[in-house]
Design a protein around this nucleic acid. Sequence first.
DNA 1: AAAAAAAACAGGAAAAACCCTGTATTAAAT
DNA 2: ATTTAATACAGGGTTTTTCCTGTTTTTTTT
Lengths: 215, 215
Amino acid sequence: MDTKNIFIVDDHVLFARSLAGLVNTFPHYQVVETFNNGAELVDALSTGIAEPSLILLDIKMPIMDGLATMKWLKKYHPFVKVLALSMEDDEQTILAMLRSGAKGYLLKDTQPDLLNLAMDSVIQQGYFHTELVTHVLMHSLHEKHTPEQEYALKENEITFIKLACEEKTYKEIAEEMSLSPKTIDGYRQQLFDKLKIKNRTGLVIFALKNKIIEI
Amino acid sequence: MDTKNIFIVDDHVLFARSLAGLVNTFPHYQVVETFNNGAELVDALSTGIAEPSLILLDIKMPIMDGLATMKWLKKYHPFVKVLALSMEDDEQTILAMLRSGAKGYLLKDTQPDLLNLAMDSVIQQGYFHTELVTHVLMHSLHEKHTPEQEYALKENEITFIKLACEEKTYKEIAEEMSLSPKTIDGYRQQLFDKLKIKNRTGLVIFALKNKIIEI
DNA sequence: AAAAAAAACAGGAAAAACCCTGTATTAAAT
DNA sequence: ATTTAATACAGGGTTTTTCCTGTTTTTTTT
């Protein structure tokens, strides 16, 4: 087997460099480039650098995060193999990455052996899935998972939620959305019913849990 | 200079192992142990393993996190040198670590060179502080920083905030705290004034930002 | 023991939030 | 073209929240 070229994309320089060292100890692998974020990778690929055999991609990055990068890759380099490497183990993130074409999803607390195995597997079989991922996939068969799908949230409802998480009155929200206060009250009521919450604090918690807003 | 022994404590196995590889490439350093959390380190030190020259300590860990570990070390191994290695760059965390005796604080996105420099500095000078840390320290001279200090939050106020973040009415909160609704209203008013917020959603956001509640 | 400060509590009222039921208006389906 | 369904909106009422200005009670200080 000839040597496989690897790219690493991770904003934590220390991790990226360390990981490169580790991967280079695996037989047949050679880290040829490390990038600090998705944008750097995109730049490089756009300016004609050769596709690697595998990209190890972090999810949480500034500038251009893992998901955005994955989506770009899916469009412009659909055949490049990507192994997502992340600390987030929440379903939404995992599913979003898999939907965008990641061939595998590893947590950063996995054993080096498993990383090696996963890399072999992705390159040879085309995919690698841990129990975690399998479990998430199984679960996803039974339920819808993005809040938009699960609760069928409409654009206006999301806008309303965002504004309701700020310290605005419903009247102010109505003005900002150019709608009648009564319509806003309708949104509120519908959301309270759908999300099974009793007041506005429930809405804030929901918004945060489902990453509709950030703090 | 003789070889310095290093411990690494980090729950992300991949990072811990990779980092060990990197550190071993630095001259005069040898990673002799890696631990997945503070508890493992404590166990090892308690059962008589030799103190290393330096501990590279992650902050965010399950079981026993960096801060708890640091406090234990301060008590039972006050002279062991610790370099905190973290992704969190918020003032509270940094200050808490420094107060507990960490000799330096690096973000995980620092360059390997800087890590090497920091390690040299901690071992030779006894400390190493980046601009980030210096800035935080300077800032801490001017302001109080835990929400309890900064806003002088009392025990009852904190309890109230926690309950107000659930979907409870003030009347229910009053019952739960065995106080008059009017007293609760007093707490609310005082907090609104102190925190410069306009309604209950502001309270929820404040509680989350200051880690009074978690989601 | 008296004065001062802090904490608990009240009255009363306006604003906002919450809740229910029903009607135009618009968009989609047949 | 007509029914259906979704969306925007209203009336009107209850509850809760928010706000302001006090008083009593307890704790702390002197």
